[in-house]
Amino acid sequence: MHYQRLGVADERLRTYVKPPTADEPLDPGRRPIDLSLDSFEDGTTPPVRLRTPAPP
């Protein structure tokens, strides 16, 4: 619930995010994750490789 309370997923990122304006629309489909409905971390997806391997 950090995002709902702070406006960011990680408090250290607050300095990089502007606060919402009063007339800024909300995404009507936005909702917190519900583990009884949402399945996205089942352990079958391989991790994302962020760096290319070093050359031999």
Rank of each mutant, 00 (worst) to 15 (best):
M1F: 03
H2A: 12
H2K: 02
H2N: 14
Y3C: 05
Q4Y: 06
Q4N: 06
R5C: 03
R5A: 14
L6I: 12
G7W: 04
V8A: 13
A9G: 12
A9W: 11
A9P: 05
D10Y: 12
D10V: 13
Y16R: 14
V17T: 14
V17F: 11
K18N: 12
P19V: 09
P19H: 08
P19Y: 04
P20S: 08
P20F: 09
A22N: 08
A22D: 11
E24T: 12
P25M: 11
P25W: 05
L26R: 11
D27E: 15
D27Q: 10
D27N: 15
P28G: 13
P28C: 12
P28F: 07
R31E: 09
I33F: 15
D34F: 03
D34I: 10
L35I: 06
S36A: 15
D38M: 05
F40L: 13
F40Q: 03
E41R: 11
E41M: 13
D42F: 04
G43K: 05
G43M: 04
G43Q: 06
T44M: 05
T44E: 05
T44K: 14
T44I: 03
T45M: 09
P47S: 04
V48K: 09
R49H: 05
R49A: 11
L50P: 00
R51M: 06
A54G: 02
A54S: 04
P55L: 07
P56C: 01
